[in-house]
Amino acid sequence: MARIIGALATSHIPAIGGAIAKGLEEDPYWKPFFDGFGPARDWIRREKPDVAIVFYNDHGLNFFLDKMPTFAVGAAPEYRNDDEGWGIPTLPPFKGAPDLSWAIINHLVDREFDIVTCQEMLVDHAFTLPIKLFWPEGGGPLTVPVCINTVQFPLPSAKRCVALGRAVGEAVAAWAGDKKVVMIGSGGLSHQLDGQRAGFINKPFDLKFMQSMIDEPEWAAQYSIHELVEKTGTQGIELLNWLAARAAAPGPVHKVHSNYHIPISNTAAGMLALEAA
């Protein structure tokens, strides 16, 4: 049987890709961000998860407004990255886990989630950067991308994203594959790129949210999307991916490590590594 070993979460600012490519981890601007990953990387080296299920949002690489699924699940043998238009390096393909993908898809539809399934799926920085950050030496895990629409309103509610995550966790726990699985939530924390409110950051909310991921994982699901945009910014809403990832690793957890740093680019950057207790 598969075993869910915990949940990881990180912000996914595109500039991180440039910083990795240029080897800027020790640069004074970047060091407080990258240093936060050390204990999480040690934990991953020790635990060696075989598969990562990555909850993320596409920013206009695979999905455009012509077809915008609320939830999409990858079911491909590999996932390619590609040119996103702003010059961050394109990464080599990531291996999929189609057996697990279909186990998840079957279970989600059984649970009445009307998802889109993708046998071809380009993955953008929101998927690739967490893998690069948590597995810096390469040799990353097999992957299953789960894409949540945070681009075009109406967005799925936080409560619905928690339910999605929970159902993914059920599917993994019931999967016959003898693998260690880690959940990854990608995005956030508070930031807003657009409009006169650009630059908005909400440190007290972010810190409360990070703590809630440990001991009260549905705390943020009390808020509507509108309230979450108000509290976290139009892009801070990406915390939906964290909520889903945490719900997919149910039960008590203990914190391996956390890090919070303002700012990277326009974003309050958060990192969290949780081990299933």
Binding site: G60, L65, D83, Q152, D194, R197, H226
Partner: peptide
């Protein structure tokens, strides 16, 4: 303040512009 949710109305209004920008991949 200073925030316009990108909803159905905006997505319709901006379709051509966004499609052009999407092509810049």
């Amino acid at each position: 303040f200073g925030t316009t949710p990108f909803d159905g109305a905006m997505a319709q209004r901006g379709y051509a512009l966004n499609k052009m920008c999407f092509s810049f991949n």
